[in-house]
């Protein structure tokens, strides 16, 4: 029951937008497409055996410390979820008597909500479609965490100089000719990296080869405006914790509404002029013989 952009237009158009919103002639904001060279991952629940080599490799590649959790009196590197030191995590799902594993990491949306809300563009689309982080432009407002439909950006709560932490597809390793570390070490091809078109082709090939093994198609092909990280599932995507998004990019609604209201800076300027004129007029006429002192 989420609000779609079309719905928003309908509502905006029909509701009387008295003083605040001048007539809304909002143009539906067009979705930003993914590029042919966009780097991504393809995860396949039917292949993952839960070895967590990806998690270990990710820690090493990104120099992130272990997320130490005491379990039964002994310390383990056991992140419950993505967090300030964990860029990828393997979780266990169960659905209808079946169980398996799912890897979580940044989805690298074609049209990311985190980048849309980021005040100074600390999170932004970089080369090869990677949603990347520039700490110099971050003030730590955490709006990205509110906006991300996948709850991906994480904050270093324990630090006094906290940063936002998320997967950047090991872009620091590209210069060495290496791709994402998680895909490099996966012993089962459960997570593979490549350009998005390649991954889509591979996903379709797997779907065509064993159609009975999968349910729900390819998550991310069009979901949420398309993501660079794609999922194949044996049990659909709800049990994996992936939200049921429409094909519309998440930022589309807000940007349609906001730009619809503002029309660039036109509406604020018009409003300012109107306010100033009325105030000036009232101010002058009110000066002599004020009624307010009664």
């Amino acid at each position: 029951m989420t609000v779609s952009r079309r719905h928003a237009l309908k509502v905006l158009g029909s509701a009387a937008f008295a003083a605040a919103a001048a007539p809304v002639m909002a143009e539906a904001r067009s979705a930003r497409p993914s590029g042919p060279d966009d780097l991504g991952l393809l995860f396949d629940t039917t292949r993952c055996v839960g070895c967590r080599a990806c998690v270990t490799a990710c820690r090493e590649a990104n120099k992130k410390p272990a997320d130490v959790v005491m379990i039964g009196g002994a310390p383990y590197d056991a992140p419950l979820d993505l967090n300030g030191s964990t860029l990828t995590v393997v979780k266990a799902w169960t659905a209808g008597g079946r169980s398996g594993y799912v890897k979580a990491q940044c989805m690298h949306c074609a049209d990311p909500a985190c980048a849309s809300v980021c005040m100074m563009g600390a999170l932004h689309k970089g080369p090869r479609g990677v949603v990347q982080y520039d700490v110099d432009r971050c003030v730590g407002c955490r709006n990205c965490q509110i906006a991300c439909p996948f709850n991906v950006p994480k904050f270093e709560w324990g630090s006094n100089t906290p940063q936002i932490v998320k997967c950047e597809l090991c872009r620091h390793r590209w210069a060495e000719g290496k791709g994402p570390a998680c895909a490099e070490v996966c012993p089962r091809g459960a997570v593979v990296s490549g350009s998005r078109p390649q991954l889509l082709a591979e996903a379709r090939r797997r779907l065509a080869a064993t159609p009975d093994a999968y349910q729900g198609g390819i998550y991310g092909a069009t979901t949420g405006g398309g993501t660079a990280c794609l999922y194949l599932s044996a049990v659909g995507f709800g049990p994996l914790g992936l939200p049921g998004l429409s094909d519309e990019p998440v930022p589309a609604l807000v940007e349609t509404v906001q730009h619809g209201i503002y029309q660039g800076a036109v509406i604020p300027l018009v409003l300012f002029g109107a306010f100033a004129a009325v105030t000036w007029k009232n101010h002058r006429s009110a000066r002599p013989g004020q009624e307010d002192e009664s």
């Binding site: 849309s116 005040m119 100074m120 807000v254």
Partner: peptide, 8 residues
């Protein structure tokens, strides 16, 4: 550096 889409 302003992001014109950022409501915040």
């Amino acid at each position: 550096s302003w992001n014109g889409n950022s409501v915040l």
